[in-house]
């Protein structure tokens, strides 16, 4: 679980959530020393935790812009929809609407 380690939840809705990154996280010291960047896979892990699902595969996950920690987090906005019971389309944006990642995940 990355909640509390990399991020905290700011708000939740049915198919959306806003989180705030924790810039002091030990993950940033490891990735990378002197140049902190949120690891792309943790953006996927956060989505899974917010949806309450486990990953069973992925058709396409695109990381569009790197997400670097900042004094204000920053806040990230997740939104998702289910194509069917086991396929989720997820979008991740910054507060200003910049699209950071787009995912089509197989989940259970």
């Amino acid at each position: 679980m990355l909640e509390g380690i990399l991020y905290r939840v700011v708000s939740r809705a049915d198919n959306a959530a806003t989180v705030c990154l924790l810039p002091e996280s030990s993950i940033y010291k490891a990735h990378f020393p002197a140049y902190p960047v949120t690891p792309g896979v943790t953006l996927v892990q956060m989505a899974l935790e917010l949806m309450g699902r486990k990953l069973t595969g992925a058709r396409d996950i695109k990381f569009i812009v790197p997400v670097q920690p900042a004094a204000d987090g920053p806040e990230l906005r997740y939104s998702w929809s289910y194509k069917d019971d086991t396929t989720a389309d997820v979008m991740l944006c910054l507060a200003d609407g910049t699209l950071c990642a787009k995912m089509t995940l197989s989940v259970q």
Partner: peptide
């Protein structure tokens, strides 16, 4: 940076 993952099985 990871740019993209496809067909993860």
């Amino acid at each position: 940076y990871i740019g993209q993952f496809r067909k993860l099985r």
